[in-house]
């Protein structure tokens, strides 16, 4: 995020707190794709991600006065988004025996619409689903959304060193999960051929 973006956000937050809905709309427009991206990575379902993004912006609308300005607005926003997503996942978990949304609904193979094409490969989805929430958050923010480690640390409220450690270990677990799937798949193919 550029300094000018951060400055602009700060100004818009001030204007919003002064009663300007236009400022709120501009904040939303500036960050909605990123917020939706984070939500989609965590929720793994476009509809659920849309719900979470909606709740995120409503939280911002309701609680903007709680933004202290100590971090960038985007950092605060991404923290709200991340927390909202995990809250919603917990609700889903409570409602269903199925702990997380199925990760097997990626792009519609009949559609070549670009927005659907960003869905993840099923094997990667499954591998990501094996990560603990802490590791998952870290890898989503750092490796998938490309946030600087410092900002990830601020979003998650942990030291940078912890983020580094989580990202490193998350990648390691991810690689192991991917390899295990390959091995399982090869074993199944071997059984079928036998």
């Amino acid at each position: 995020m550029t300094a000018s973006r951060a400055d602009e956000d700060s100004l818009l937050v001030e204007q919003f707190l002064d009663g300007s809905l236009q400022a709120f709309n501009e904040l939303m427009a500036a960050h909605e794709d990123r917020v939706f991206g984070i939500c989609l990575r965590i929720m793994r379902d476009r509809e659920a991600a849309l719900d979470a993004a909606q709740e995120t912006f409503l939280t911002v609308y309701r609680k903007a006065e709680k933004f202290t300005g100590e971090s960038a607005f985007s950092t605060w926003l991404f923290r709200v988004a991340t927390n909202t997503c995990y809250d919603q996942l917990r609700k889903i978990k409570r409602r269903s025996a199925d702990p997380l949304p199925e990760a097997t609904d990626p792009a519609d193979p009949q559609s070549d619409m670009a927005f659907l094409a960003v869905e993840l490969r099923p094997d990667l989805q499954r591998a990501l689903a094996t990560l603990t929430p802490e590791f998952h958050k870290a890898i989503v923010l750092a490796d998938m959304e490309g946030l600087p480690l410092q900002q990830v640390a601020e979003v998650l409220g942990v030291p940078v060193g912890t983020v580094k450690s989580r990202v490193f270990r998350a990648r390691k677990q991810l690689a192991e999960a991917l390899r295990n799937q390959t091995t399982d798949s090869e074993r199944r193919n071997g059984d079928n051929n036998a």
Partner: peptide
């Protein structure tokens, strides 16, 4: 190897944009 495998897998992930 682990880091490269994970990063290579994640490199396929494009940016998410709302339709």
């Amino acid at each position: 190897d682990d880091q490269q495998l994970a990063l290579a897998s994640l490199a396929d992930v494009g940016p998410v944009v709302l339709s």
